[in-house]
């Protein structure tokens, strides 16, 4: 099933308008694959029929489902490993000292997908910094544009493939319970994370000032103006001595000069506000 160029253009404009995602030429296969599944699920005879229906009557629910299908991205526990090593060895020990009087810590996973990133953060803290769980006011906020992903993340039941990706076996034993062929995250970790639907290109809701923001593999999907806008918003919610962690192919360089890179031997794209 091949998309016509007008169908591809229609979806491209829809995504640009709804969530500012830039779909480049050559990504027709992605639309084909993802909306093909959605068309099936929604009872359309083909992807052509789905797009035809959308272009005649732009039903908000269906538009939301299209955005949802196109923005669901693969993730895994402790993805890229090094940002979590940085968190454990440098960022949390430093913040533990700097926030010793207030005993408050806010961490935000800003594109949490199916939950592996915020739950990895929660497991790391539970394992290595139990005092943050027991004696501090610790908030881990996780947000995503996709309600399907958020629902999945809130359930916190993962399949065998998902727990095979990036999750040390000791953590599987410690923090999961087996449910037939699936694995349920235990409440002690699940309850550490609060999920919220949030579209990064729309007006942000009230958020507490953040000590650490994980915004990984998000900016790559946007054009320069949208990247600027998002980083401007990040500046407003990041504490002056807080940290922003981007994906391995992302930078603030030439986008927002308010940020400076934090150089460490781990070579993580970690930034803080320039003083």
């Amino acid at each position: 099933m091949t998309l016509s160029s007008s169908e591809f253009d229609y979806i491209r404009h829809l995504l640009k308008n709804e969530c500012a995602i830039v779909l480049e030429n050559g990504k027709e296969y992605l639309v084909d694959l993802r909306l093909g599944i959605l068309a099936d699920n929604e009872g359309f005879s083909s992807i052509h029929s789905l797009i035809g229906h959308l272009s005649k009557r732009s039903e908000p629910d269906l538009v939301k489902k299209v955005v949802d299908a196109m923005t669901t991205n693969e993730t895994l526990f402790f993805r890229d490993h090094k940002p979590f090593e940085l968190l454990q060895k440098h960022l949390l020990p430093e913040l533990l000292q700097n926030r010793a009087s207030s005993r408050e810590l806010n961490i935000w996973s800003a594109a949490s997908s199916t939950g592996q990133e915020p739950y990895s953060i929660a497991m790391l803290i539970h394992q290595h910094f139990p005092q943050l769980v027991n004696q501090w006011n610790l908030q881990i906020l996780a947000s995503d544009i996709s309600f399907t992903c958020l629902e999945y993340a809130r359930e916190a039941v993962y399949n065998q493939f998902e727990v095979n990706r990036g999750l040390p076996i000791q953590l599987l034993i410690r923090y999961f319970e087996q449910k037939d062929t699936r694995w349920q995250l235990k409440p002690e970790i699940k309850n550490m994370v609060k999920f919220q639907e949030l579209n990064l290109i729309q007006t942000w809701p009230f958020l507490p000032k953040m000590d650490i923001i994980f915004l990984r593999n998000v900016l790559i999907y946007f054009d320069l103006d949208v990247k600027k806008k998002i980083l401007e918003n990040v500046r407003k919610v990041l504490k002056p001595d807080g940290y922003l962690i981007l994906g391995s192919a992302e930078t603030t360089l030439l986008i927002d000069s308010a940020f400076e890179r934090v150089e460490t031997s781990l070579n993580v794209n970690c930034y803080r506000l320039a003083t």
């Binding site: 493939f161 727990v163 095979n164 990706r165 076996i169 000791q170 599987l172 034993i173």
Partner: peptide, 25 residues
Amino acid sequence: KIIEALTAGADEYMMKPFTKDMLAD
């Protein structure tokens, strides 16, 4: 079974089927 393997001295445990990425992880 996982606990039995780790108790015997395995360092990690991977459930088949697997991919190259899973092995690399």
